[in-house]
Amino acid sequence: MSIQHFRVALIPFFAAFCLPVFAHPETLVKVKDAEDQLGARVGYIELDLNSGKILESFRPEERFPMMSTFKVLLCGAVLSRVDAGQEQLGRRIHYSQNDLVEYSPVTEKHLTDGMTVRELCSAAITMSDNTAANLLLTTIGGPKELTAFLHNMGDHVTRLDRWEPELNEAIPNDERDTTMPAAMATTLRKLLTGELLTLASRQQLIDWMEADKVAGPLLRSALPAGWFIADKSGAGERGSRGIIAALGPDGKPSRIVVIYTTGSQATMDERNRQIAEIGASLIKHW
């Protein structure tokens, strides 16, 4: 067993022997301040990774656009098919120029040779490549099948209805392509620590998230040296922004954090800054 596999296998073990965790309302004060600064709703939840206990939450059962955070769930569904012998990570998928959609920095470079399922998941999570996500959605049967996968996990809230990039439209009061912070946090925890996926697939999923290259201005910008984070960000229309993450000190994750916002007129930089400040408060009061 590799060191990384050992780390993920012992996530519940280490967490069980940690000192009790206590909620700190100071972080919620910052979440509410972010709402004021952005002029928009902000949803927040913080779960203990081992027990699933909610440590703090704000608007945990209000719907927010998922945006690209759905790509972690998508690759979880792909990995479940791999575990069941219905898919192979090494299978190569070929596609054409007509398949390319807006923001496809990886797939646009491989029109000639195609990409493997493993490479597509890596591109979808680490670079948020939209064509990679659409190609992977095709392998599982489309958005409705991802929703069905989530329902089978016990998540009857999260739903995907459309493809990239239309799913980022974020129309107010439109339930399409949305989740709730509580539902997303619980589902992410199941994917990373539950028995739904094999140990190898859980490790692969967290490795992809740990290698995320496009979430630097968010929670990662607030992390002290030595902290662990595996995350996936999302951005959408109407001032929408979000991030889902597993993080913790001492090089291992111990909490799940989900943050979503929508309806702001603020710039992307300002949305990023507010999420980073929430992260800084979380870490300060850990």
Results as ranks from 00 to 15, higher is better:
Gly279Glu: 02
Arg162Asp: 06
Gly216Leu: 08
Phe70Asn: 11
Lys213Glu: 03
Val257Pro: 00
Glu62His: 02
Lys213Trp: 06
Thr186Phe: 13
Gly39His: 06
Leu192Ala: 04
Thr179Ala: 02
Thr139Trp: 07
Gln37Asn: 05
Tyr260Gly: 01
His156Ile: 09
Asp33Gln: 03
Thr139Cys: 13
Gly39Thr: 04
Cys75Arg: 00
Gln204Lys: 02
Trp208Val: 13
Lys232Val: 01
Thr187Met: 14
Glu210Val: 14
Asp174Arg: 12
Glu119Asn: 08
Leu247Arg: 00
Gly251Phe: 12
Ile256Ser: 12
Glu61Ile: 03
Ala132Leu: 00
Phe70Cys: 08
Gly279Leu: 04
Glu102Met: 03
Ile243Met: 15
Val257Gln: 02
Gln274Glu: 11
Asp269Ala: 05
Tyr44Phe: 11
Ile275Met: 11
Arg176Ala: 06
Lys190Leu: 12
Gly85Cys: 04
Leu47Gln: 14
Ala245Ser: 09
Thr138Met: 14
Arg118His: 09
Phe228Asn: 15
Thr107Gly: 10
Leu111Met: 06
Met115Trp: 02
Thr179Met: 01
Phe70Ala: 09
Glu108Cys: 15
Ala245Leu: 05
Val82Asn: 13
Ser233Tyr: 11
Ala235Val: 13
Pro224Gly: 10
Gly90Trp: 03
Leu219Met: 12
Ala211Phe: 10
Ser221Leu: 03
Leu167Pro: 13
Asn272Phe: 09
Val78Tyr: 08
Ala40Asn: 02
Gln88Asp: 15
Val42Gly: 02
Leu28Asn: 12
Gly39Ile: 04
Gly141Asp: 07
Ala183Cys: 06
Leu74Ser: 11
His285Asp: 07
Leu135Pro: 00
Leu111Cys: 05
Lys53Cys: 12
Ala182Met: 04
Gly39Phe: 09
Ser104Gly: 12
Pro105Glu: 02
Glu237Ser: 12
Leu167Tyr: 01
Arg41Tyr: 06
Cys75Met: 10
Glu175Ser: 11
Thr131Tyr: 03
Asn50Val: 05
Glu175Phe: 08
Lys30Tyr: 05
Asn50Thr: 10
Gly239Val: 01
Asp48Ser: 04
Gly142His: 09
Glu237Leu: 08
Arg176Met: 03
Asp129Ile: 00
Gln37Ser: 07
Met66Gln: 12
Glu46Ile: 15
Phe228Cys: 12
Glu277Asn: 14
Ile206Asp: 11
Lys53Gln: 07
Met209Thr: 09
Ile278Cys: 12
Glu62Met: 02
Asn130Ser: 14
Ile125Pro: 00
Met180Thr: 03
Glu195Lys: 06
Pro217Phe: 03
Gly52His: 09
Gly85Lys: 07
Pro172Ser: 04
Gly85Asp: 08
Ala123Trp: 08
Ala276Asn: 12
Ala280Ser: 14
Gly251Arg: 11
Leu47Asn: 12
Glu169Asp: 03
Ala34Thr: 05
Gly43Asn: 00
Gly236Tyr: 06
Trp163Gln: 12
Ser201Gln: 15
Arg63Val: 10
Ser57Pro: 08
Asn98Met: 04
His285Arg: 09
Asp231Thr: 11
Leu282Trp: 05
Gly114Met: 03
Gly52Cys: 14
Val72Thr: 08
Leu49His: 13
Leu47Ser: 09
Gln88Lys: 14
Arg118Ser: 11
Phe64Pro: 00
Ile275Leu: 12
Ile256Gly: 07
Val101Asp: 10
Leu146Phe: 13
Gln274Gly: 09
Gly52Asp: 07
Ala84Asp: 05
Gly142Val: 06
Leu160Cys: 04
Asp48Arg: 04
Ala230Thr: 08
Thr262Phe: 09
Ser80Tyr: 14
Asp207Tyr: 08
Thr262Ile: 07
Asp33Lys: 02
Trp227His: 08
Ala185Ile: 11
Pro172Cys: 09
Leu135Tyr: 03
Gly248Cys: 07
Thr138Val: 07
Gly216Tyr: 09
Phe64Val: 05
Arg162Gly: 10
Cys121Tyr: 00
Gln88Ser: 11
Val42Ser: 03
Tyr103His: 04
Arg189His: 10
Phe228His: 15
Ser122Arg: 06
Ser281Phe: 03
Val78Glu: 12
Ala225Thr: 03
Gly85Glu: 09
His94Ile: 03
Leu100Gly: 10
Val72Lys: 01
Val257Arg: 00
Leu199Cys: 12
Met127Arg: 12
Ile229Asp: 01
Ile54Ala: 08
Gly248Arg: 11
Asn272Tyr: 11
Gly234Cys: 09
Gly52Thr: 10
Ala276Asp: 07
Gly85Phe: 11
Arg202Ser: 11
His285Leu: 06
Gln86Asp: 14
Glu277Ile: 14
His110Cys: 03
Arg162Asn: 14
Leu150His: 08
Ile54His: 15
Ser122Cys: 06
Asp177Met: 00
Ile229His: 07
Asp174Pro: 12
Leu188Asn: 15
Asp155Val: 01
His151Ile: 10
